[in-house]
Simulated scan of single mutants.
Amino acid sequence: MSRSTPRNETMSIARLARHLGLSEGTISRALNNYPDIAEKTRERVQKAARELGYRPSSSARRLARGVIETIGFVLPTCRTQHSDPFLAEILNGLATELALHDWDLLVSAVPDGQNEVDVIDRLVGSCKVGGFVIARTRRHDARVDYLRQSGVPFVVQGRTDDPSDYSWLDIDNEQAFIDAVSYLRRLGHVKIACLSGDPTMNFAWQRRSGYLHAMAQQGGHIGVGYLIDGITDAVSAKDATNRLLSITENDRPTALLCVTDAVAIGAMQAINGAGLGVGRDISVMGFDGLPIGQAVHPALTTLHQDSYEIGREAGRMVLGLCTDPSSLPKQTLWQAKLTPRASVNPPGTSPAQHNQGG
């Protein structure tokens, strides 16, 4: 006969066993659907567990199923401003998706004197995580090389030069910058400069490639000094933009395509500081779709990628790999959405005139 158990008492396997008058081993095996437990007993145990609010701990599930229900995310060693808002949104989406499935997210920083592979290796060796999500991939990425050999499930936000044999979710960065140049050319811009990022980072290299391809195909003009690599934050963007502004007025670009929104905002600060008008003298376009782009003046035209949803999808993908190790790699390519705002206008047109004309 079942014994009464106070509902405000934390339910455990031991208390559930006392409540049903069964052994703890029988309770555990019934909850985990072992075939040696009679169906009637299994249904009785699982019904009581639902009614009394029993929830297995993650450690108990790990022991029962052999699955470590924690996903690791090692923060990239790059600490520049361009990465932080994007990564924060990804982590938010990833943590949300994992929490919906009662999985945990372990975020680990890289201590001084170590690299990301050292930290990943330590987490793998300690059996603290069942899988990984990594972000901000390099064209040749040691983290991906390590995880390929580790046997641990992983999903990459981004890609490397050779993305054929692992699961990844990425934005079509090259096509996005082709679309950006096409948009600027339709507005009448010919002299279009580009503040590009770290060329060892694959997303920056792809965007740079899209700019060069589109300018060559669409008759754009890349003047001396128009393409500047290694621009990773607002500070370096201000310095690079000031160099562009020092070009004689006849040769100065009329539009500036920036690798990220943070870089674009730094460029806008330099343009305003020089007494010129963003969207009037020089149009500026960013990439990421960060909320701050709507708060600056004029509002920033951007190529929008939903970093929160990227995090959610990465969570779904890594959960699928962890729960079904036999599944094949899943590779997903999303398109960025061009979001026009007041920072981009036809050459020589004020934002107000362009808005009235549109």
Score class of each variant (00 low, 15 high):
residue 120 I to C: 07
residue 121 D to F: 02
residue 126 S to G: 05
residue 128 K to A: 15
residue 129 V to F: 09
residue 131 G to H: 08
residue 132 F to R: 02
residue 134 I to E: 02
residue 134 I to R: 02
residue 135 A to N: 13
residue 135 A to S: 15
residue 136 R to N: 11
residue 136 R to A: 12
residue 137 T to V: 12
residue 138 R to L: 14
residue 139 R to E: 15
residue 139 R to N: 14
residue 140 H to S: 14
residue 140 H to F: 14
residue 140 H to A: 15
residue 143 R to V: 02
residue 143 R to T: 02
residue 144 V to W: 04
residue 145 D to N: 01
residue 145 D to L: 08
residue 146 Y to L: 14
residue 147 L to R: 03
residue 147 L to Q: 00
residue 148 R to S: 13
residue 149 Q to R: 10
residue 153 P to Q: 05
residue 155 V to Y: 00
residue 157 Q to W: 01
residue 158 G to Y: 00
residue 158 G to C: 05
residue 159 R to F: 06
residue 160 T to I: 11
residue 160 T to D: 01
residue 160 T to F: 11
residue 161 D to E: 11
residue 161 D to I: 07
residue 162 D to S: 13
residue 162 D to I: 12
residue 165 D to E: 10
residue 166 Y to N: 07
residue 166 Y to S: 02
residue 167 S to H: 02
residue 169 L to F: 05
residue 170 D to A: 15
residue 171 I to R: 01
residue 172 D to E: 08
residue 174 E to W: 01
residue 175 Q to W: 03
residue 176 A to H: 05
residue 179 D to Y: 05
residue 180 A to V: 09
residue 181 V to L: 02
residue 184 L to Q: 05
residue 184 L to T: 04
residue 186 R to I: 06
residue 187 L to R: 01
residue 188 G to R: 00
residue 189 H to T: 04
residue 192 I to V: 09
residue 193 A to G: 11
residue 193 A to E: 01
residue 193 A to I: 10
residue 195 L to E: 09
residue 196 S to A: 15
residue 197 G to H: 07
residue 197 G to L: 08
residue 197 G to P: 10
residue 198 D to S: 10
residue 199 P to V: 12
residue 200 T to H: 08
residue 202 N to D: 04
residue 203 F to C: 13
residue 204 A to V: 12
residue 205 W to R: 14
residue 206 Q to T: 13
residue 206 Q to L: 15
residue 207 R to E: 06
residue 208 R to N: 09
residue 208 R to Q: 13
residue 209 S to Y: 02
residue 209 S to M: 13
residue 210 G to W: 07
residue 210 G to F: 04
residue 215 M to Q: 06
residue 216 A to S: 07
residue 217 Q to G: 10
residue 219 G to D: 01
residue 219 G to I: 00
residue 219 G to H: 04
residue 219 G to T: 02
residue 221 H to T: 10
residue 226 Y to D: 08
residue 227 L to W: 04
residue 231 I to G: 09
residue 232 T to E: 10
